[in-house]
Design a protein around this nucleic acid. Structure first.
Length: 554
RNA sequence: GUCCCUGUAGCUCAGUGGAUAGAGCAUCCGCCUUCUAAGCGGACGGUCGGGGGUUCGAGUCCCCCCGGGGACGCCA
């Protein structure tokens, strides 16, 4: 199904060409025809500024061009009226009868309403959260989770074959520090004088984990050689941290197709192999005892270390290998990494990395989301994993709830820093916009229950729908496919909550003005029941993409 | 010092170079004998941080300045 705005653009292009052909407009190259939604509903459903764009080349006034283009427009069943307005806008209003008929189309489409084929089945991957497993997920991880999951859903709806992935950094020096911290806390359970290293993790959660392991395994690890013990105990602790993250994601309603282990890149020697490949291609320099990736030759400010002088590869080295795996081994055509703003400086390096592997850098999109500032009232909550002074995602989930949590995280553009006031989030939970949208869905469910009790069944004649409130609701429903296309194309999931609120608003308005179930008017009632069912479908589709429940009652 | 994000209503934030800049919350005034009042209607609220520029047209693009956040490591 093609989008209405594209149909209108095609209609305009044809009209302009026809006008040029019969000489009423001077011949010139046509720009891409702009079709937008006017802010003011008095200006119709769609507007084009084509005449304004053509005015200069045509040496005519926009108004005159607009009139000529309109005269050459061919008939269509969906355009009700066309007007020339303002300084040369062409305004289109959709036909009432056509609008009413679309209710049937929405009902027929059901869950697939809103599907648009931008991706043509291209294999895409969204990698997100990917937090270090050295500590519990913090509140900020929730933002990346909501963003990534909804974006993945949008891309799937837009015709991509999408996989969701969580990258587990279970290798490297941070992990060694975590292992040492866990081992120290474990040993302390038995009176040992092991200390958490200075660069280790002081958080309470490490002690709790160590206590659990001590209870389950007793002194077992104290009887092993220290290094072996640290490694084995460390892996147990690590796996529990990963399971904990998985539990948090489950409760947030985010499910990954794969949890990819960084360590596996070392186990299969893909990291070493990738460094060899880079060396063959002339991207490696060795100096000061370290192995450098010569990114400066690729336009970067400076080179970056891949293998430290102590022989341990950097995170950057495994990250290049990881992306090699994504693009070249697993064949993703498009990879989207979602990172926090603190990793922003890593983007050009990463792009240079895949370029050096022969992968076009455009195939990697890194979506950066700004940090959140956690507050309790006016007090800013500082966060540090090492001191353990953090507000966990778990805590926020327990306090605010999944639906409000996801809606809240999603409702801001990734570019925007956000204040997350925990007290406010709790207080707000009752008049959070999420409940407004859910209420619309529940209200519809209630109407449908009532209608069933009253014995209303069968399909309605949707042509009976012509009340302004009915038509306004239909218009908003028909916007959904365009919203999906825009949000997917521009990687802007935050448009969804705004859309859903407006859809809910128009439903509530309709509800106020039009009674659905009227015994004396069975035909109209059935038509309105069809409308209401269609609205419920669109609400559910939008909520589903956001990972928010669509309740049958509240 | 360099780079990235950002500054819009009291607060939190939307806003594809287009028409009179919007929403939610907060405040105030109305609306339930009717399918859910977690709802609806109305009011109040703006130097779009400041200054230049680009053009038919700038909250939106460019430059400078100011404020907020982040990054510039053989950390991740």
């Amino acid at each position: 199904m093609s989008l209405i705005r594209d149909e209108i653009a095609a209609l305009l292009a044809k009209a302009a060409e026809a006008a040029q052909h019969d000489g009423s407009l001077p011949a010139s190259a046509l720009p891409e025809v702009p079709v937008e939604r006017p802010q003011n509903t008095e200006h119709g459903d769609y507007a084009s500024t084509l005449p304004l764009k053509l005015a200069r080349a045509a040496r005519m006034s926009p108004m005159a061009i607009a009139r000529i283009v309109v005269e050459h427009l061919s008939q269509s069943d969906y355009v009700g009226s066309v007007e020339v307005g303002g300084a040369g806008f062409i305004n289109f209003t959709l036909a009432d009868a056509w609008l009413a008929k679309q209710v049937a189309a929405v009902l027929a489409a059901g869950k697939s309403f809103g599907d648009v084929d931008l991706g043509h089945g291209a294999k895409a991957q969204v990698e997100f959260v990917s937090a270090n497993p050295t500590g519990p997920l913090h509140a900020g991880s929730g933002r990346g989770a909501a963003l990534g999951d909804t974006l993945a859903g949008l891309l799937a709806k837009a015709g991509y074959q999408v996989e969701r992935e969580y990258y587990v950094n279970d290798a490297g020096t941070r992990m060694a520090a975590f292992f040492a911290s866990a081992f120290a806390r474990y040993a302390q359970q038995f009176g040992g004088d092991e200390q958490v290293p200075a660069d280790g993790y002081q958080g309470q959660y490490v002690s709790e984990l160590a206590r659990d392991l001590a209870r389950e395994y007793g002194r077992h690890f104290l009887e092993l050689p220290r290094e072996k013990a640290m490694d084995e105990l460390g892996r147990l602790a690590l796996n529990r941290m990963v399971e904990r993250a998985r539990g948090d994601m489950d409760d947030l309603g985010v499910f990954f197709d794969r949890w990819f282990r960084e360590q596996s890149l070392f186990d299969t020697n893909l990291v070493g192999d990738t460094i060899c490949l880079l060396r063959e291609r002339g991207h490696i320099a060795e100096r000061e005892g370290a192995v450098w990736f010569t990114t400066s030759a690729l336009g970067e400010d400076k080179d970056n270390v891949l293998v430290r002088s102590n022989g341990i590869p950097t995170y950057f080295a495994s990250d290049i290998a990881y992306h090699r795996d994504k693009f070249l081994l697993r064949g993703f055509e498009w990879v989207i990494d979602i990172w926090g703003a603190d990793h922003q400086g890593h983007v050009p390096r990463m792009k240079a990395g895949i370029e050096a592997l022969g992968v076009a850098p455009e195939r990697l999109t890194v979506l950066i989301h700004q940090m959140i500032t956690l507050k309790r009232g006016n007090e800013i909550v500082r966060m540090s994993k090492r001191t353990g002074d953090i507000v966990t995602l778990r805590e926020v989930l327990d306090e605010v709830g999944r639906d409000a949590c996801r809606f809240f995280f999603l409702a801001r553009s990734a570019d925007s820093q956000m204040d997350f006031d925990l007290e406010l989030a709790k207080e707000q939970s009752n008049d959070n916009p999420v409940y407004y949208v859910q209420y619309a869905h529940a209200r519809i469910a209630s109407i449908l229950r009532y209608a069933a009790e009253q014995g209303f069944g069968g399909a309605g004649e949707v042509a009976l729908l012509r009340h302004p409130a009915e038509l306004a609701l239909i218009r908003q429903m028909l916007l959904f496919p365009e919203l999906v296309a825009d949000a997917a194309q521009r990687l802007e999931p935050h448009r969804l909550p705004y859309y859903a609120q407006e859809l809910a608003r128009l439903f509530h308005l309709f509800y106020q003005q039009c009674r659905v179930v009227v015994t004396e008017e069975p035909e109209l009632s059935r038509a309105r029941l069809s409308l209401v069912k269609a609205a419920q479908i669109v609400l559910a589709n939008a909520l589903g993409l956001m990972g928010v429940n669509a309740p049958e009652q509240m």
